[in-house]
């Protein structure tokens, strides 16, 4: 099977979004995504990165962010984001409900909601790092997102 794999190790900073997007788009094109589906992948990754920047690291600069992409041409794209910030529990996160009035607290949770709409699978994991995960023995978050062609 024709595969493409790449890893980007960078910092969780808004200025890195373009590099991250370029890597993910390269992998998505390899899979065979185009047009609106490419837009979906870009959007889900931006939302995931911004959750890491704003919540896991509370906008502190310099936090570790690793982006892994794995493409199987004609089948699926897997994107893994690893950070060493505050643990994230999707079950306790604010959940956006588009059927509710868009006022007050309803203004949060767009990002996670969009990620769920745009990707076929989302898996959130939290654990203690192994040496490969570059978090210096700190706990880490791992988000795995899958989109099938």
């Amino acid at each position: 099977m024709d595969r493409f794999e790449a890893v980007l190790r960078t910092s969780a900073h808004i200025e890195q979004l373009t590099r991250i997007r370029d890597l993910v788009c390269t992998a998505a094109r390899h899979t065979g995504f185009e047009g609106v589906h490419m837009n979906h992948v870009e959007l889900a990754v931006e939302e995931a990165c911004m959750n890491i920047i704003n919540h896991a690291y509370a906008r502190r600069e310099g936090g570790y962010l690793e982006v892994q992409v794995r493409s199987e041409r004609g089948r699926r794209l897997t994107i893994v984001l690893i950070d060493c910030g505050q643990s994230f529990d999707p079950a306790s996160a604010c959940t956006y409900d588009p059927s509710q009035p868009l006022e007050g607290s309803q203004q949060v949770g767009f990002g996670l909601y969009l990620m769920r709409c745009l990707m076929d699978e989302l898996k959130f994991e939290f654990g203690v790092t192994s040496s490969e995960e570059r978090c210096s023995g700190q706990p880490f978050n791992r988000l795995t997102m899958v989109k099938n062609l």
Binding site: E42, E46, E47, L102, Q107, F110, G111, L114
Partner: peptide, 16 residues
């Protein structure tokens, strides 16, 4: 050509 949740929040805040 593209809008993310950051843009959505700006629009919603302006509307409010």
């Amino acid at each position: 050509e593209y809008i993310s949740s950051s843009g959505l929040r700006v629009l919603l805040s302006a509307r409010t």
